[in-house]
Design a protein around this nucleic acid. Structure first.
Lengths: 157, 157
DNA sequence: GTCAGTGCAAAGACTTTGCAACACT
DNA sequence: AGTGTTGCAAAGTCTTTGCACTGAC
């Protein structure tokens, strides 16, 4: 994502019905800058601290929580239990590497079409579905090694 | 899942290369009993405590972690940041209710076929996929209300 | 008998909260 | 001006760790 001007930041935040304070703009800016890294509150704080030494960690926590409620950002599911955040992009799919614990964006329009199609036919009882995501788990391999999906075992599917 | 005998518990645990201690059997028994509830360590502890007052919470934490490493149980992704566990069943899909914070199993063979199919064609670069899961997010509705998927907005897909 | 596993309690990590001061609308 | 937001620090929650003891193999 490109650099946002102060005005744009203001607009983004105000558009969600939130007061556009300077801390919120800074936090939003940081999470945009860290897009793809799925940072924790602490990481957001560390990122914006040099340029904004007066902001407090507690405010970052509160702000991210507020943003998540307002759907300005979304929480990323983790197996480790920490809360991570990301800008609310069009894809909700992630790959989780069990070796490096990275969460990598996986953006595949085809997959999304397939799923969207599936759920437009398959209604879930007593449930109003708001969004869905695919979570892939696996391990990074060396670029020169053979890439395979054959390792997907039946009992995992 | 049915009741497991002490011998069966022993076998399950030993089969993963772990020492089959009585604490481990009790923890495994509890998580089987709580299958579908996706309990936290604390909940597992509360469940087994009445019958096993001498077991310590720390041991439950350690044991669940050990089990997860050995893939005897799996960690369930949560948005809230707490670690939850479940027996390693054949489905990996969940529905998360943002109202009640419940995690509900969603077992749909058709969906699994669709995804399995998709990923058998679509290889992911430099990544060996081990498993995948679909995470649905939404809200429970009253049984008499209209159920709809139309609320799925484009920007979430 | 050996060594991994356990209980306990303390430490650690992460997150939330209360409140006075502050700043956006 | 009024109300929601911030900074700070303290409290709270959840999880891990160290160590002496125990029990499974």
């Amino acid at each position: 994502m490109q650099q946002l001007t102060r005005q744009e930041l203001h607009k983004h935040i105000a558009a969600s019905g939130l007061k556009a304070t300077s801390q919120r703009m800074v936090v939003y800016e940081a999470i945009v800058a860290l897009h793809g890294h799925h940072p924790t509150a602490e990481e957001v704080y560390q990122h914006l601290k040099p340029a904004n030494p007066s902001i407090s960690l507690g405010t970052v926590y509160k702000t991210l929580d507020t943003f998540a409620e307002a759907e300005l950002v979304r929480r990323v599911l983790t197996e480790e239990g920490g809360k991570r955040y990301d800008t609310n992009t069009t894809t909700h799919s992630h790959i989780y590497c069990s070796n490096t614990r990275e969460i990598i964006d996986f953006d595949d329009p085809e997959l999304e079409i397939v799923l969207r199609d599936f759920f437009s036919k398959r209604q879930v009882e007593n449930f109003e579905i708001k969004s869905f995501a695919v979570q892939l788990t696996g391990k990074k391999v060396e670029p020169d090694k053979q890439i395979s999906i054959s390792g997907v075992s039946n009992q995992n599917l």
